[in-house]
């Protein structure tokens, strides 16, 4: 299966190991992965700040890079959701529509498209899963505590396949961490407070690692953990699913 790897800009710049783990994992699962090297940003930071109208060039570039791919997979629920909901290209509307309906977050791609749970990973640590809102509420990666519907979690299902792992749920399992893109700087005080509270509930479980499907949330939590001098680390779920003994 030919898969276009979508590595969001901040992962490219700050967390290359997440891109490497995603690429390695998908390859292990039998995908033929290509990384279009002219990709930049999905345009979400502008759009969420009210400037969706300005992200046209960004969108066109995205379409140029990914229009040949059967599927597009990215290790970020938030960026994937943005593309899914907002990607537009007036010159190539069909190509944009194809991308919108064939772009997947990593864990949903593994379970829903590859239809495999054959995760061969070993990660002997205590892990807390952070449910990033855009992945959870936007893409439906897991059930929501607000709704009265059957309970499930795609990331949890995959993490459950990892040998040696001990998974812990924090209280308020799906409360937002306060990253929210530009929210993290426009509403700095609330954002940091939300992050501190999220961390406190994970640390109450004595976890070694906080993981999730969105590196952006984890980057925010990491910043606070480091400021606090905490020994708790953050790792993207791809790194854990790709971890070997």
């Amino acid at each position: 299966m030919k898969v276009g790897l979508f590595i969001p800009c901040y992962i490219d710049q700050f967390y290359p190991q997440v891109g490497q783990a995603t690429l390695s994992l998908l390859t292990k699962l039998g995908c033929e992965v290509v990384f279009p090297t002219d990709q930049t940003c999905c345009g979400q930071p502008m759009a969420n700040s009210g400037f969706a109208a300005l992200s046209g060039a960004c969108d066109q570039n995205f379409v140029r890079n990914f229009s040949g791919c059967a599927y597009i997979v990215g290790p970020s629920g938030s960026c994937v959701l943005h593309v899914k909901e907002h990607l537009k290209d007036e010159k190539q509307p069909e190509a944009a529509a194809h991308i919108r309906s064939h772009i997947y977050e990593l864990t949903e791609f593994i379970l829903d498209i590859l239809k495999t749970e054959a995760i061969q990973a070993f990660f002997p640590y205590k892990v807390g899963l952070h449910n990033s809102c855009h992945g959870q509420r936007g893409l439906g990666l897991s059930s929501l505590s607000e709704r009265v519907l059957p309970v499930f979690s795609k990331p949890e299902r995959l993490l459950g396949k990892v040998k040696g792992i001990q998974l812990f749920k924090p209280l308020r399992n799906d409360e937002c961490c306060g990253f929210g893109g530009t929210f993290s700087v426009f509403e700095e005080a609330v954002s940091v407070k939300m992050g501190k509270d999220r961390i406190a509930r994970h640390e109450a479980n004595g976890v070694d690692v906080i993981t999730g499907v969105d590196m952006s949330c984890l980057m925010h939590l990491e910043g606070i953990l480091k400021r606090q001098g905490s020994r708790t680390r953050v790792m993207h779920i791809a790194e854990i699913l790709n971890a070997e003994a």
């Binding site: 967390y15 290359p16 891109g19 490497q20 990491e222 606070i224």
Partner: peptide, 26 residues
């Protein structure tokens, strides 16, 4: 920098993913 007020900055790695990819995989 409002980010830095309550958070540390992510560490910039030596190589971006793209650079690594071009060097190792392409």
């Amino acid at each position: 920098n409002p980010w830095y007020k309550g958070r540390e900055l992510p560490e910039a790695p030596k190589q971006s993913f793209r650079d690594w990819y071009l060097q190792n995989k392409k």
